[in-house]
């Protein structure tokens, strides 16, 4: 999940079904934990047992105004997860050319596409940001070609309405 420094969620993805209220609660909980931590400390949090289950660990990274948070169990390596956040952010960086919070806010579905290329069903599938980029670009191209026809007449109203 991605949360900004004010506790607003920007992107969240749960690999087991959670009802919406539960999701919000979890995000709030994570934020409460994170916001209390100073900057120069380690990026792992272990004691989340009460709310996420005993083996769950959390790794987060703080970029400018955003927290990137991954939760994982003991079949993942902590440092590898930290790298994975790096990969994710790198990819975002490449996609949006130096990513900032606004990019994350306005490119909601693209964020999902990127994340989906990296992780499927809780399994890390791709750790090379170049590969991820390639896939994402293909998908974007695919989107624009298939919607080109409809976009022609849609582009005007959307510009009009705003």
């Amino acid at each position: 999940m991605v949360i900004n420094t004010l506790g607003k969620p920007r992107l969240s993805k749960f690999y087991e079904f959670q009802p919406a209220e539960k999701q919000q609660e979890l995000i709030r909980h994570v934020y409460a934990v994170l916001s209390n931590r100073p900057d120069n400390v380690s990026n792992f949090i272990r004691s989340l047992g009460a709310i996420f289950g005993p083996d769950t660990r959390l790794v987060y990274k703080h970029y400018a105004t955003l927290y990137f948070v991954f939760l994982f169990d003991n079949s993942e390596n902590e440092l590898a997860m930290l790298d994975l956040i790096q990969v994710f952010v790198e990819t975002l960086d490449k996609c949006f050319r130096s990513v900032c919070e606004l990019d994350v806010v306005f490119n909601y579905s693209k964020m999902h596409t990127i994340l989906d290329e990296i992780i499927l069903g809780g399994q890390v599938l791709e750790t090379d940001s170049v590969e991820v980029m390639r896939a994402v670009e293909e998908i974007t191209k695919l989107e624009s070609t298939t919607t080109a026809s409809t976009l022609i007449n849609k582009s005007i109203p959307s510009w009009w309405a705003s």
Binding site: L11, K13, A20, Y108, T146
Partner: peptide, 25 residues
């Protein structure tokens, strides 16, 4: 739904309907 936790279970059928679209998007 995903950012503000709004319930959208009522729209399940619409999602299914749309999934059969020819358009990839």
């Amino acid at each position: 739904h995903s950012i503000y936790g709004i319930d959208m279970s009522w729209a399940a059928f619409h999602a299914i309907e749309l999934s059969s679209s020819q358009s990839f998007n």
